[in-house]
Amino acid sequence: MNDWRIYRGAGLPHDGIRRLPPPPPWRDFAAAGPDTGPGADPSAARRLGVQRRLVENHHPRPEEVEAVNAALYLRRPLLVTGAPGTGKSTLAHAVAHELGLGRVLRWPIVSRSTLRDGLYHYDAIARLQDVQLERAGADVGARRSIGSYIRLGPLGTALLPAARPRVLLIDELDKSDLDLPNDLLNVLEEGEFALHELERIADREPEVEVGTDDGGRTVIADGRVRCTAFPLIVLTSNGERDFPAALLRRCIQLDLEPPGEEQLTAMVRAHLGDDAVTDGEELIQRFLHREPGEVVAADQLLNALFLTQHAPSTERVTRERLADMLMQPLDRPR
């Protein structure tokens, strides 16, 4: 079948969906990846490439390596800025993969995010409902501890005592409201926080088991979490806002440039294999030699390479039209 189209726009029902090929590796949410077992990160294959080895697929620049090591040595957060698609989030996964630090904890920031969201969530409504049901004589099973209603967030989980640091990705901090960067200061400086609901009952329940962002359980003593190995915290920003000086002085700052030819080729090879590098040479060069100041993300190139692989080579006009559609500059006025 030479027709690559699944949807034909003819209005006639058919079973062409059976011909849909496997998804791009970076959009394959069912794949477990080659790293399995306790602590494996299921999203690492999508981020780093299914055929990955760090040296082959990431090719970090010397300044990136130095900034990561500075953050590790100084136990400071790493603030990574750069245009969309420059690999800011991937850097966190690359470090965790190389150093064997387990699944990357991820806190995606939105305009409504608060410090409490990152630390822990207490479901007071569910607890109140259970208490009311018990008083009404309903059979709700064994009486549940307060810890059953508390789950640590990604930042709270990263700060749990551990022999080795966890990697925490606080993604797109510039999307937050004005208060969050300042609210983070004390936690980032002290490496600890209190769960006020547990502090109030610490005299009668000094140890309480709560849930974690990993889906596991952990014991909190005296209502406080104190880290023993400060996590590698990667804060990313698209450069859409300025941050307070108090946050900047607590961070190691790294500005990521768009990937060069070596990084781009390695990225394509890691995700799509050697054939994609050869067959997509024209698109790779088009990406590298775009207009100065034009913003095009690397994942746009990957999307174009993947999709044009499925369009017949004889349909050059179709392939070019697909490439144009998928590689539109992000800063182009709409």
Rank of each mutant, 00 (worst) to 15 (best):
L20R: 14
P23Q: 02
D28W: 05
F29A: 03
A30E: 15
A30P: 06
D41E: 05
A44R: 12
R52N: 02
H58L: 14
A70E: 12
P77D: 11
L78N: 01
A92G: 06
V95L: 05
L99C: 14
R103A: 15
D117A: 01
L119E: 01
Y120F: 07
H121K: 07
L128T: 03
Q129K: 14
V131D: 13
E134V: 06
R143Q: 10
S145R: 02
I146C: 00
L152S: 03
A162L: 03
D171F: 01
E172G: 02
L173Y: 07
D177Q: 12
L180W: 08
L188N: 09
E192M: 14
A194Y: 04
D203M: 09
G216M: 09
T218L: 03
D222S: 15
R224P: 04
R241L: 05
C251L: 08
P258W: 05
P258A: 05
Q263L: 01
L264N: 01
M267C: 13
T278C: 13
I284E: 11
R290M: 03
P292W: 05
G293H: 06
D299R: 14
L301M: 00
N303A: 15
L307W: 10
T314L: 10
T314R: 13
E315T: 13
R321S: 11
A323F: 07
D324G: 00
D324I: 01
Q328N: 11
D331Q: 10
